[in-house]
């Protein structure tokens, strides 16, 4: 059984599996993240085991387990094991991590102020997050889960796992980021093609540095669309973020207070655009105004 430990932002994971090659891929993808975690107390254990003893060798297929129930993950083929571990890690955070409000959103910072990008899958959130990540002015904080502290002026804490690029966003980023920061191309996954992109080193080095939210945006990408901006009301922003959170309800009044404080102090916009250039321009304009 091979074991690998990872630290992403505040959380440490221990991954175990008899499929050595899968964990070797994980190690390679995370080689620029903090190392030497053997003496640490870790937050979550995740296992990737053969579906049955036979399936370790014959049409190898992996099922995942962890401290918090992973019954919802269907077994994956061994060649997609890396993706399976990523999903398992995300689910441990979504189900078991209660030290921050976990929001399904991307985030990035300039100095110590942050933008929070929320939206359903397919809205363009991930692509926009990837675009910002390799812009010199922005410090990438996370592409999928944003961690909001339980305070009256909540801070965003980085959770900069490798960015999960899907389909069209893969070539978009291949022209913008160095080749040695990409993981292997995974084809025919449930989400089509997937390729991981390790964020710039600065994002990893500063993954313990929180930032104060300054702007919330909710992107809508539609090819060819004219750029448009609409201010969201406080309550609309509350409902959006609250429903995008995996754990706010479980956090009770502390979660409610922090979320209310965020939506009362930070302006929120719904933006539509038809190209990457327009998206970046809108974000810059709104950031200036905010």
């Amino acid at each position: 059984m091979k074991r690998v430990r990872l630290r992403i932002g505040p959380a440490i994971f221990e991954l175990r599996s008899p499929f050595r090659s899968v964990l070797t891929e994980v190690e390679a993808l995370y080689r620029r993240y903090p190392q030497n975690l053997d003496g640490e107390i870790f937050d979550f254990s995740v296992t990737g085991l053969p579906v049955s003893p036979w399936r370790r060798f014959l049409r190898p297929s992996i099922m995942f387990g962890g401290d918090f129930s992973l019954a919802d993950i269907v077994p994956v083929e061994k060649r997609l094991g890396l993706l399976g571990f990523e999903m398992a890690i995300n689910l441990q955070m979504a189900l078991g991590y209660l030290r921050h409000i976990v929001v399904h959103a991307a985030s990035a910072a300039k100095d110590d102020e942050a933008i929070l990008i929320t939206g359903e899958s397919g809205s363009g959130k991930s692509t926009l997050s990837a675009l910002l990540s390799y812009q010199a002015r922005w410090r990438h904080m996370g592409d999928e889960l944003a961690l909001l502290s339980l305070e009256t002026r909540p801070l965003l804490h980085p959770y900069p796992r490798p960015i999960s690029l899907k389909n069209e966003s893969i070539p978009v980023m291949e022209s913008r980021a160095p080749e040695d920061r990409f993981g292997p191309l995974l084809t025919d996954t449930v989400k089509g093609d997937v390729r991981h992109l390790v964020p710039p080193q600065r994002a990893i080095e500063q993954m313990d540095r929180p930032a104060l939210p300054k702007l919330v945006i909710c992107p809508h990408f539609e090819a060819g669309r004219e750029p448009a901006v609409r201010r969201m009301t406080e309550s609309e922003c509350y409902v959006r973020l609250s429903t995008a959170s995996t754990n706010q309800l479980r956090l009770g009044e502390r979660g409610f207070d922090a979320m209310v404080s965020l939506v009362k102090t930070v302006p929120a916009y719904d933006i539509s655009y038809g190209s990457s250039e327009d998206a970046l321009k809108l974000v810059d304009e709104l950031w200036q105004q905010a």
Partner: peptide, 9 residues
């Protein structure tokens, strides 16, 4: 089977 998946046995 589900329980095994959960506990990772």
């Amino acid at each position: 089977r589900d329980a095994t998946r959960r506990t990772g046995r």
